[in-house]
Design a protein around this nucleic acid. Structure first.
Length: 208
DNA sequence: CACCAGGAATGTA
DNA sequence: TACATTCATGGT
């Protein structure tokens, strides 16, 4: 299994090259983007991020001081704006009251993950995205694409988030750089080949 | 027109 | 634990 997972990574990396994730200028932007992209095309998230940037609100501390209605209007392009505006307030308040990135960085990964999951609006995937891309922790992010990959290539019969995550984390070195590229490459693969079609045409993973 | 996108919360059984 | 429903804009 270790060899198969590494072979898949190699093929994707050779085909697409480094993805340079997370596409953001600051850590705050990563956290905000992670919430906005929940079940939403990244293209729409970029519009919402740009609206926040143009209003000087692309910072967690700023958002914690902004009323929800204002945030709703600015993030509308990203969809689910009524919920996400509240979610952004929740995660912003959490960061502020916790002393910001610097203080939270002192916590071990398990503790930090649990604290993030306690924030309403932050589920497993969003929490792990923040841990991996904002805090640089070696956590594997599992998304819908990852599950399709597992299913189509019959890597295991697991389906739950935790089971799929364990599959990768117990069969790969716990390397933040590796997990960063791996997840980004799976998203890239899905966008290029397997988004809607059940079978990839010209998919770089043929025969794996 | 239908379907999907870098999910999560809530309710039901 | 395992599903079903709801949330909402914008691209294909």
């Amino acid at each position: 299994m270790k060899e198969r997972l590494l072979e898949i990574f190699s093929r994707l990396y050779e085909k697409f090259g480094p993805q340079h994730w997370w596409p953001a200028e600051t850590v705050d932007e990563i956290v905000i983007g992670a919430v906005l992209t929940q079940n939403t095309a990244w293209k729409n998230v970029e519009k919402a991020l740009e609206n926040l940037r143009n209003n000087g609100l692309l910072e967690l501390k700023k958002l914690s001081e902004t009323n929800v209605e204002t945030i709703k209007e600015l993030i509308k392009p990203a969809g689910f704006f009524n919920q996400k505006a509240i979610y952004l307030k929740n995660i912003s308040d959490f960061f502020v009251k916790s002393g910001g990135l610097k203080e939270l960085s002192h916590l071990d990964t398990k503790t930090l993950r649990q604290k993030l999951l306690n924030v309403k609006g932050i589920g497993k995937e969003t929490a792990d995205s923040i841990l991996l891309y904002a805090f640089k922790r070696p956590i594997f992010v599992v998304d819908a694409y990852t599950r399709r990959l597992i299913e189509r290539h019959k890597l295991c019969d697991c389906s739950s988030y935790d089971e799929v995550q364990k599959l990768f984390m117990e069969n790969l070195p716990l390397d933040e750089k590796l997990f960063n590229e791996y997840h980004a490459l799976i998203v890239k693969l899905a966008k290029e080949f397997c988004s809607k079609k059940p079978i990839c045409n010209g998919c770089p993973l043929e025969g794996v």
